[in-house]
Structures are given as C-alpha cells and as structure tokens.
Computed example of a mutant assay.
Amino acid sequence: MTGTHENPRTSRRNILFGTAAAGAALLGAGCTSNKSNDEADAGSGQANVADDRPGKHVTIGFAGPQADHGWLNAINEQAVRRAKKYKDVTLEATEGSNDNAQQVGQIETLINKKVDVLVILPADGKALTQVGLKAMRAGIPVVNLDRVFASQQAYRCWIGGDNYGMGLNAGRYIGEKLKGKKKAKVVELAGIDNLELTRERTKGFDAALKNYPNVEKVARQAAEFTVESGQSKMAQLLRAETKFDALWNHDDDQGVGAERAIEQAGRDDFLMVGGAGSRRVMDAIKADDSVIKATVLYPPTMAASAIDLARALGQGKGVGGLAEFEIPGSMTLYSAVVTKDNVEEYLPTGFK
C-alpha cells in the first residue's frame, strides 16, 4: 500500500472480515450447522464452527452512543444491516445516548429482557464498566465494541479499531511522501484530547515520524470531532504556520470544517491525510483535485463483525479459519491507508 508498504488486498481482508462489504464473513458467515459435530468435522475439518446456515435463534441487544457523528451513524447502520441478514437473529437496539446514566439504564433494560448476547459501544468505556460486569454476572456474554471497558471481566470479547496503528500508518504515509524533502514540516489536527483514542493516535503518528529525521511536526491542535471545531482549529493552525508540507487530520467529519478553513485561506501548498474513511473523502481522493491525498481507515464495519461474534457466542460456535472452538477474546482491526492507487477497492466501505 502506498506509503505503508502494505499489500492492499491483504489489508482489505484484514479490515473487512465479517462484514457485508467484504462478502466473506468473519465467521464464515456466522451461524450453526444442523449437522452434528462429527458430521461437521468430517466435512470441513473443524467442528463447532459458525457458518451461514440458519441455526439456533439468538436475540442480540445492541447499545451504542447517540449517532450525532457520521462514523457513529455508520456503526448503527452496519449493526442493523448485519442483523437483518440472518433469519435466526433478532436485534433489540436502544435509541443510543451520550449520557452515561441514560445508556446504563438502556443496557439494564436489555439485561432485564434477558437477551442472549449484548453488543455495547459505550459512550465512555470506564463509566459503563459496571453495567458490563452486571450483564456478564447475569450470564449474558458481552461483545465490547471499540471503546473498551476498564475491566476484562466486563466483556467476553472486544473488537475495535487500532488507534495507535491509525496514527502509525498516517505518519508512515506522510513520511514516505516527504522523505526526499529537506526540513519538511507537518501539522496535526487531533480529536478530543481527553479521550485515550486521541492520545493513542498521536503517539502512533509521532512514533512513525521518528523514522524520518527530515520531517518535523511543528504544530498540533485538538478539535472535537465536529465540523465547527475542525474549521476553527484548522484556521488557527493556518494562521500559526504559514508554510508546512503535510497535515494529518484525525477525523473525516471534522475534516469538513478543516477543508473549509483551508479553502477560505486559499492554501493548497500541502497534502492532507484524513482519518476514519468517509465516502466524501474517498471521492475527493479519487478526483485528485484537492489537498486530500489519503485517509487512514477506522472501519465502522466493526459493528457488523460484532453482530457476527455475538451470533456465534449465542450459538456456542467458533470462528471459521481458526483451529480454536471458541471466538477470540479480542480482535483489533487494521487501519489501512486509502490512496488514489487503491481507492476503487475501498469505496464500498466509505460511510456518509
């Protein structure tokens, strides 16, 4: 992959396993067979593995934060769409809330309904740890989606993005693009600084840049994952730094505002790398008529994979392609870099 030395097809397979966009499901595609274990073992070489055929019915409770952001909205859409694919799955979804107490109440309602499995993307992992523990103690396995609980006892499986790797791959791409330039300067438009995920993205970015002694990060501003904050913080960066060679923006949604500030300033003398993988940014990369040259994925398809994992848990199944009879305790998705060279392959995964 351009700037990261990754094989794009390998990367795509790594991030899209188990999602509708990939076609081939994580769980091969996530359901029990009507055959006995002996028959399954004889036919496939592995018993107790989930596949695409209807099996034991599973009721999955899904609780996430309020969909007030493009990526979060895509998370909800992926979960609902994936659940509808299966005739043996009923999805009980909450309205979603950014208020910790309200989200706890919504999850407790799902616990009282005695759903078979819970998929939870907490507004705040630490604050919702206790309700995860409550579900597990009630015998309801929890798939913890992305924002991790403070205790491993609060979930059976965690699946999410690689924030450190996201920064690492953004830094590698930029470093490769600038490695022939003397005294190159880069700036960073981060997300919400009190979130661990933001700090991890910055750590990864800084670690990658250390491999390029000619590249210096000269400025950083933290925005709030909103269009408005992206515009105001980017305007500050542009005023402070009259000349730089590359910008890494952590989030494609706040990037809408950043791009407005860049256009208003009349600047086109640097390259921009986005974060998360919105369809809008992928279209811009394909058009190749702006400063946007790449985006680093943080795939919302993880919600579809979480539904697959929950279904397998409810049916007591394992993951196709692995020797183990149980699903793993954690799964970290890969943060691929999308460029003009591979954007056609990734366009179906772009979220609105």
Score class of each variant (00 low, 15 high):
E6Q: 11
P8W: 13
R9N: 14
R13K: 13
I15T: 09
L16V: 01
A29K: 10
A29Q: 11
C31I: 11
E39R: 03
D41M: 15
G45E: 04
G45R: 03
A50K: 07
D52Y: 15
G55E: 08
G61E: 07
A67L: 13
G70F: 03
W71K: 04
N73E: 14
Q78I: 01
Q78T: 07
Q78L: 03
R81C: 04
K87D: 15
T94W: 09
T94M: 07
E95F: 13
E95C: 00
D99H: 04
V104S: 00
L110A: 01
I111G: 05
N112A: 13
K113F: 05
K113S: 10
D116T: 07
V119C: 05
L121D: 08
A123H: 03
A123T: 10
T129H: 02
Q130A: 11
M136F: 07
V148C: 00
F149V: 00
S151T: 02
Q153F: 02
A154K: 05
A154I: 02
Y155A: 06
C157Q: 11
G165T: 07
G165S: 05
L168M: 11
K177D: 01
K179N: 02
G180Q: 12
K185C: 05
L197G: 00
L197F: 08
L197W: 09
T202A: 14
T202M: 12
K203M: 09
A208K: 10
K210H: 12
Y212M: 06
P213Y: 10
P213S: 15
E216L: 10
V218C: 00
E228A: 13
M234S: 06
M234H: 12
A235D: 15
Q236D: 13
A240K: 13
E241S: 01
D245L: 03
D245V: 02
L247T: 08
W248Q: 03
W248K: 03
H250R: 09
D252E: 01
D253T: 06
D253F: 14
D253V: 09
V256E: 11
A261Y: 12
A265R: 13
V273G: 10
G275Q: 04
G277V: 03
S278A: 14
D283S: 03
D283P: 05
A284F: 01
I285D: 01
D288I: 00
A294P: 08
T295P: 03
V296T: 05
A304P: 03
D308R: 04
D308S: 13
A312M: 12
G316D: 06
K317C: 15
G318Y: 04
E324D: 15
E324N: 12
S330N: 13
Y334A: 00
S335D: 11
V338E: 09
K340G: 13
D341M: 12
E344D: 15
E344K: 07
Y346H: 01
P348F: 06
G350D: 06
F351N: 05
